[in-house]
């Protein structure tokens, strides 16, 4: 699918031919991207692929060298206060406010926005109600990230950027965080998320984009990425001489036939798998880098 096909008038984010270099090093090299309003879009890619550079250009923090960028209909290089009021940002690093309590920081930020959400309600929604009087530097890593999200959504943004929001979370904290993101998405907020965790992208995103070497090399629903819904399934089982496996386009027919070879029709240790998002992703990243080496 090309960007032109995906792009609909009034997309929340539209990027064409984005380019950014730091000296000799090209971080973003002709990237195209479109994110529809109300969509949860996850950007995947290895470290140094250009994810954060791209996101920070969209947030208005960095200048681009070339390309067209429109975020909520505005070029972020000319961001105004009115535009910033419609955009929520959760940066990659946690900014710390020494000697301030959670509720003090949230209230301070609420005052910057024209139409802020209720500070207490937001603190409760991100699960910091019991910590609202705690000094921010005493919070745990996960709690600090919740505060980051509280500050990102306090202005009731139409579009929320989340740059690696759950890095360093334990599994339970990550699940709770996902619920928070799902609730925001259900409320109509467009979300652009970058992450290293493929299962996170799979759990949250309507569509996933893969960045490699500064380009978007694939985009689509997580189930279809890299054509994995159509690719061959792997059937594995325990044969008389040890583990065996086979690739097949028709796993049902294959298993039906296979069952006849075992007494009682029960196949020992049977599994049928299709390529996971991780398999599809790793295959793509591999192809991407070899292309570059040849170039």
């Amino acid at each position: 699918m090309t960007v032109a096909e995906m792009s609909v008038a009034g997309d929340a984010i539209e990027v064409r031919g984005l380019r950014k270099a730091y000296g000799q090093e090209v971080a973003v090299d002709g990237l195209d991207l479109a994110v529809a309003r109300g969509e949860v879009f996850a950007l995947l890619g290895p470290n140094g692929a250009g994810k954060t550079t791209t996101v920070e250009i969209l947030e208005g923090y960095r200048r681009r060298d070339a390309g067209d960028v429109s975020v909520l209909g505005v070029d972020p290089a000319h961001a105004t206060a009115a535009w910033r009021a419609r955009v929520g940002i959760v940066l990659q690093g946690t900014g710390e406010f020494y000697e301030l309590r959670v509720e003090e920081v949230v209230r301070l930020f609420a005052g910057y926005y024209p139409n802020p959400d209720d500070a207490d309600a937001v603190i409760e929604r991100v699960g910091l109600l019991e910590k609202r009087r705690a000094l921010t530097h005493t919070l745990s890593g996960g709690q600090k990230r919740r505060l980051d999200v509280a500050l990102g959504v306090i202005g009731r943004p139409e579009l929320l950027f989340l740059d690696e929001p759950t890095t360093g979370f334990d599994p339970e904290a990550r699940r709770e965080f996902w619920e928070l993101i799902r609730a925001l998405a259900a409320g109509g907020t467009t979300i652009l998320l970058t992450t290293h965790y493929l299962h996170e992208a799979e759990a949250l995103a309507d569509r996933v984009g893969v960045i490699n070497d500064g380009r978007l090399i694939a985009a689509g629903p997580p189930g279809e990425l890299g054509g994995r819904s159509q690719s061959a399934a792997t059937v594995s089982w325990l044969g008389p001489g040890g583990p065996e496996s086979a690739q097949t386009e028709k796993p049902t027919a294959f298993v039906y036939a296979l069952a006849g070879r075992f007494a009682g029709g029960e196949i020992p240790s049977l599994t049928i798998t299709r390529p996971s998002l991780e398999d599809a992703y790793l295959a793509m990243i591999d192809t991407g880098s070899s292309t570059k080496e040849r170039a």
Partner: peptide
Amino acid sequence: MNTRVATAERSTLTLPTLGLRQG
């Protein structure tokens, strides 16, 4: 789709009030 219409573009607080809060 977000249907909320922004009613104001800037904070409802005035610059001196914001400055005082910040101080």
